[in-house]
Every structure is written in structure tokens, then in C-alpha cells.
């Protein structure tokens, strides 16, 4: 077993162990962080590894969330198939958006993804009769049961979040160490050279968008199931910016970075809001300092300073 695999399995094991020792409050925070870290890991596949900066990833999160939520609420689909429907919705959306948005690059790509994401937000409002618009809807606790397990209960919720997190962490690790994963990095580094090595750059980019969108959809669906709420705010601009921030903080293009960044940001807000009402100022200053002194993010900087093996 290589150091890299060992490290990631270690993180997974540590998170499992923490489940039994954490006080209730932090237990809840960590469950949320793990789900959001899945969102960030999905984002990282596109941004960190392929070099595609999207400003519209809220749409994939929301597609997963609404795909799951509407299926359960409107059509009485049981939880597990509803969860899979949510993922399928994000997959389809990513495929369509990918095919269209990848006709552009750079700034235009950012604008196009932002635009698609806003369209989804507006569509959610427009079809308020089904989606309950701005308000969103809650998923009753009775719906959030699977095989006799109550996903609304803290312990099962933590365990479910941990399970999804582990699968996605190991999945992205396998992806970036695979042959295809290395081609994604090559595209990020030098697209023209990659093409002139005989790789179909467009197809690889589309694969990155679809994998990324699908993972983010899984995060959205899981969030809805575990926290019992489906709302339009998750499809708005802040939820496109958060994963970008988390990934940048933790280290774009590192497998563990998105989790580190998400965890860091949650506790930064948590701690500073306990100190002052102007906590966003504290957060802002911290982010500026990090960008100035650790431009590659926390894990990226570690990789630069000796941990070259970090995937």
C-alpha cells in the first residue's frame, strides 16, 4: 500500500472513530462538512484536476437535491431509488451542460456555467407549484427511513455521510491515479500539447464535467436526505462559489484538499461568529492571508514543501 492510499484510508478511519467520541454539536457539524466535502471533491475533479473553472456548480448540487426531493415528495418514490434519481438528474444535467458549455473556454466558460445555473434557479422559482419556489420544502422524518434505519438520527446520519464521503474520496483518488486522470492533469497543464499527444481533449473534458456534476449531485441529494430540507437557496450563486472557495483553501488538485478546505471554512465561520457579529470580516481577512501566503491552498502548499507524493 502506498503512502497516498494509506493517508486517505487513515483519514477515513479517523473520521469513523471520531463518530464515537465527538460531542453532539461537533458531531453534527462534521456530518455536514463531510457531505459538503463531497460537493467540493466533485468540484475539484473539474477545477483542480482538469483546470475548468465553473461558476455554476450549484446547479448540479440542486439537481441532485431536487431530483431526489421531488421524486419523494411528489411521486412517493422510496428513499433509495429517489436518491439514485437525484444522482441521475445531476448526471443528465452535467452531460447536457457539458456538451454545450465546452464549446467555450476560459471566461466564457465561467459565464456560460453561471448562466445555466441561474436558469435552473429561475426554473425552480417558475415551477413553484411543484417546487414550492423560494420556500422549498421539508422532507418529513417518516420519509427519511431506509431498511429500518432513521437517517434523521445523528448517529445514522453521520454514518451515512461518512459512507458517501469515503466512497467519493477513494473514487476520486482512483480516478486521478488512473490513466484517464493523468490525461485530465495534462489538459490542465497544457491542452494543446495533450491534443498533440493524440488525446481527444474534448471527450476527456466532457468526462470531467459529467463525473464532477454527478458527484456534486450525489452531495446535493445526500444533503436533502440527511438534513431534511430541499430549497432554492442551494441553487443560488453562493453555492457555486462555496465549493470553489473550499477547494482553493484546501488545495486545488489534491484529493484530500477539498475536505480540509471545507472543514477549515466551517470552523473558521463557526469560531469567528462566536467572537463577533462581524465574523464575515474575520473570515475575509483569513482568506486574504491564506491566498497571499499559501496560494496553493493548505494541502497544495504541503505538497510543494516536501510531500511531493500527495495525489
Amino acid at each position: 500500500m502506498s503512502r497516498a492510499v494509506g493517508l486517505h484510508l487513515g483519514v477515513i478511519a479517523a473520521l469513523l472513530a471520531l463518530q464515537f467520541v465527538l460531542p453532539a454539536y461537533h458531531h453534527g457539524v462534521l456530518a455536514r462538512v463531510m457531505v459538503m466535502a463531497v460537493f467540493a471533491m466533485g468540484y475539484n475533479v473539474m477545477f483542480g484536476y482538469t483546470g475548468l473553472l465553473s461558476l455554476g456548480h450549484a446547479m448540479f448540487f440542486a439537481a441532485g437535491m431536487y431530483g431526489m426531493g421531488l421524486a419523494m415528495k411528489q411521486w412517493d418514490v422510496p428513499l433509495v431509488p429517489a436518491f439514485l434519481l437525484g444522482i441521475a438528474a445531476a448526471f443528465l444535467l452535467a452531460l447536457v451542460v457539458g456538451v454545450l458549455a465546452l464549446r467555450t473556454a476560459g471566461v466564457a466558460f465561467m459565464i456560460v456555467t453561471l448562466m445555466f445555473s441561474q436558469s435552473l434557479f429561475l426554473a425552480i422559482l417558475h415551477f413553484g407549484a411543484i417546487t414550492r419556489g423560494d420556500e422549498g420544502f421539508a422532507l418529513a422524518r417518516s420519509l427519511r427511513q431506509v431498511a429500518g434505519l432513521d437517517l434523521a438520527a445523528p448517529a445514522t446520519r453521520y454514518f451515512a455521510a461518512w459512507g458517501l464521503f469515503s466512497v467519493v474520496l477513494l473514487g476520486t483518488l482512483a480516478l486521478v491515479r488512473s490513466r484517464r486522470g493523468r490525461v485530465l492533469v495534462a489538459i490542465r497543464e497544457n491542452e494543446e500539447r495533450t491534443r498533440m499527444l493524440g488525446y481527444d481533449v474534448w471527450r476527456h473534458k466532457l468526462m470531467a464535467v459529467v463525473v464532477s456534476g454527478t458527484i456534486c449531485g450525489a452531495a446535493g441529494a445526500a444533503y436533502g436526505v440527511l438534513f431534511g430540507y430541499v430549497g432554492a437557496s442551494f441553487s443560488q450563486v453562493p453555492y457555486s462559489i462555496f465549493p470553489l472557495l473550499w477547494v482553493l483553501l484546501g488545495g486545488a488538485g489534491t484529493v484530500i484538499g477539498p475536505f480540509v478546505g471545507t472543514l477549515f471554512m466551517f470552523y473558521l465561520i463557526d469560531l469567528s461568529s462566536g467572537l463577533t457579529d462581524a465574523y464575515m470580516l474575520v473570515v475575509g481577512v483569513a482568506l486574504v492571508l491564506l491566498t497571499l501566503f499559501l496560494p496553493r491552498g493548505l494541502m497544495g502548499s504541503l505538497r510543494d514543501r516536501g510531500m511531493k507524493w500527495l495525489p
Binding site: R182, V185, A186, T194, L197
Partner: peptide, 14 residues
């Protein structure tokens, strides 16, 4: 036009 951030062997590996 090499992959500047990657190692020499990774370049050839691609």
C-alpha cells in the same frame, strides 16, 4: 511545449 509542472518521466508517460 512540455508539461512544466509534471516530472520528466510523467511527461514521457503521457
Amino acid at each position: 511545449s512540455v508539461f512544466a509542472e509534471l516530472s520528466v518521466s510523467e511527461n514521457v508517460e503521457l
